[in-house]
Design a protein around this nucleic acid. Sequence first.
RNA 1: GGGCACGUAGCUCAGGUGGUUAGAGCACACGCCUGAUAAGCGUGAGGUCGGUAGUUCGAGUCUACCCGUGCCCA
Length: 1001
Amino acid sequence: MTDTAPGATETRDNGERDYSKTLFLPRTDFPMRAGLPQREPEWLKRWEDMDLYKLLREQSRDREKFTLHDGPPYANGNIHIGHALNKTMKDLVSRSMQMLGYNSAYVPGWDCHGLPIEWKIEEQYRAKGKNKDEVPINEFRAECRTFAEHWVDVQREEFKRLGVMGDWDNPYLTMSFDAEATIASELMKVAMSGQLYRGSKPVMWSVVERTALAEAEIEYHEHESDAIWVKFPVASQAWSDEAPEERLLGASVVIWTTTPWTIPGNRAVSFSSRIAYGLYEVTGAENDFGPQPGEKLIFADKLADESAAKAKLTFNRLGDVTFAELSAMTLHHPLSGLAGGYDFLVPLLDGDHVTDDAGTGFVHTAPSHGADDFEIWMAKGREIAAKGIDTTIPFTVDDAGYYTKDAPGFGPDAEGGAARVIDDKGKKGDANQRVITALIASNTLFARGRLKHQYPHSWRSKKPVIFRNTPQWFVYMDKPLGSDTDTLRTRALSAIDATKFVPPAGKTRLRSMIADRPDWVLSRQRAWGVPITVFVNTDTGEILKNEAVNARIHDAFLKEGADAWYAEDAKARFLGADVPDHAAWHKVTDILDVWFDSGSTHAFVLRNSEKWPDLKFPASMYLEGSDQHRGWFHSSLLESCATNGHAPYESVLTHGFTMDKNGFKMSKSLGNTIAPQDIIKKFGADILRLWTATIDYAEDHRIGDEILANTVEMYRKMRNSFRWLLGNLAHYEPEEAVAHADMPELEQLILHRLAVLDGEVRAGYRAYDYKRVVNTIANFMNLELSAFYFDIRKDALYCDPISSVRRKAALTVLDHLYSCLTAWLAPVLVFTMEEIWLERNPGETSSVHARTFPELPANWRNDALAEKWAQIRAVRRVVTGALEIERRNKVIGASLEAAPVVEIADPELLAALEGHDMADICITSQIDVRRAEALASEGFTLADVPGVAVTFARAEGERCARSWKVLPEVGSDPDYPDLTVRDADAMRERAAAGLDAGGDA
RNA sequence: GGGCACGUAGCUCAGGUGGUUAGAGCACACGCCUGAUAAGCGUGAGGUCGGUAGUUCGAGUCUACCCGUGCCCA
């Protein structure tokens, strides 16, 4: 075969000459496979080298600030999937707000004080046989500090690896000196304003860790308790005219408890006016110990039978015991007379917390050992005192779990020494047994047993805790501050109303917690934290309020950290000459609840404009998991309301928790945990980020192999579309750009779609609705670009002559697509978009992340055009459907083999097609669109596209060796007998441009 | 036990104020292309919307209860 056509160098197997080298085929080195796990660290290094974060700050310093304030993770251990989700979410918010045009600085932080770290150091001590109490406290604190520093470094690297951008070189730490100084000052502000008080309260106490625990530090686990039923004999004394009736004398009220060791602390028995009580006489006893026939006992009627069964008794009901009788009654303590103690009267108190669901209908009340007990005792204080009963709450158990002298018969003076409730290992001591023995001896034990139930345990040691009366520091929730209606609680509630919650349910949740919560217990009897920097008068208990002293404390902490409080000369140094009588003041050694630390971050981060000038107070947003309604959202709100009178945030965003693939919570014991490190190693951080952006974070959500595979697939599709974009744009010269008005309608349609998407993407990012953003973009790329626009325009892009406006217009559109899509996806696929951006925009300081979302010309939006093209696409669907049948029947393979006849009955539809090359749009070689009054009955139709019928016909003519179109005109050009007219022109232009010189023509 | 949520195809998500045959993408099956090629295109099957009972002419969308899951609390 003679080769007259320049440029066509090879011959194909089918005899056609190979023109592929004369086409503008996609040309790129951008790899189809991303290799993210290997390559991501390179981009991280690049950003670090160019100091991208600082670059952004400088570039956006004049913009409006958007401050997402980081809630500090605890500096202890590697990050898990929850951390990864949380930090990635924050990064999505921060980056998208930056690209929306704000100065969105992000300063990460860490929570460094607290029990878990202290616990780790103690564990190390124990392993070495070292005793914590023998180590100077500041030495111990230094070890805690070093430990926290280590994990800050570890987590910092793990967070950076996720692609999270922030001020990593300059994060905040709750243990930095300036933080410790500010936290102490915040506490002193609270003290100075009269909101701090010292109270005595039963708190959850861990004997093992020797500390009071907050509710947040308590877990409930199955525990077997000793249950006892105890008789309280009716006392003969009465304080009113309504003396007990004769029939009640000698009777006993029976209580039930699962904590026998609290009996020495008993001071009352609670009952309820809503419950019916009766007097019962024992008629038969199976055992020869315990209650015997003739004994009279009082029970809630509903629970009498059940209780009788416990003691293996039979009862006879003698009659009602009325509310008036019970109210007028006093009881003897069951251990009355033991070791000369317990000779006080025990009142009966009407309490709401009493039910007849379980027990006896009477509730043992030990004000030093239970919240309800404490509250009713306090509430009825006046009534109790009026009966001549001492209202003092005893301290019956010390911090090591031993009874004190307030528990006669069991304290240090008792035979065999003090009994113990719980030992150092968290095991049950001898207290219960000794109390039970004493009850038996005094014939006041009704029955005993064991009970398995949920019991509070320490979150760290997993050992049971006890309720124990201790002196603690509190913040008032309801004390009027200024006006009667201005309390910390009312301030916090109105601050919640002024805050935007995403999703809105968060508002209800936080509100109900604030509305119900008791006073805030601030004190911990531990070492690793910020001390409660107050002095208390040894006589009056009043708190020293001296600004000069406070200032000295603040300054010292700033220079030396909170260790200064524990230095030997601290008291003299801080009181100084401003306080004359140093001996009259006691230096408090308790430390602050860590929630106060993290609740104060707004004070030492957002208001530290010297260190972080790009942040603002209050923050634009706090963003954490939904558990933080009880945690950081809560403590920050209270702390700021106490010191500033308003919330530290304008909005609060919460996310749910990550479950396993079946929707169950992840736990090490179930073995269903998924580590973010593993996902990164296997797929890359961009996949983890894409997963984060596609889930409905407001709810709990799942992760697993199949879900990640879906994410990977989504990524792959988008990546390949970008690859094709890049390949085509290799042939684009910006100076060839075609103006919007000069573009074909198809190009204008795509620009219209970009304009619409621009609105959706911005709205989605503003609403923090990332799944909407990503799904919208991915659908656009798959359905409108890959399957429609790209498919149609391949012919023009590959084959059209150099001069073709159609081709240049398409390239211009590809350039716009590239510009928009890389920006829109940059907050999510931080690595991949940078990779794609650098392909065309290399440079030392070039980064897609330094961009803002492109501003698109308003005239791109053209709804009328879109409507028209919806009709065109409907016709296209009918054509595609018709071809599919022929393809099934093996009549054709490629659609270019077809030349269908399209009959249109609807004149409006026909008008829509006017002026468009439907063959191009349908990717056929030829097409015959014609008006038809009645549609051919054998034509292919679609039910939802009325008035259109398509009849298949094979394309007539030869196949063009260059464009593969089948047209009758092929062969008409003497120079290029194997090409269409368009392709022959293209070849001539190439020859004129000297493009194909060097071919073997 | 209490408070707050959630439960739409195997998976991830759409489905304003209740209204015709519940929508996408991925996965799956089948087919086409071989000039996006460890890619691209098309077709198909697959959900009675956790369950039950109500309100209504009509409920995925409202009410009650139940089941399941989660967070917080006790």
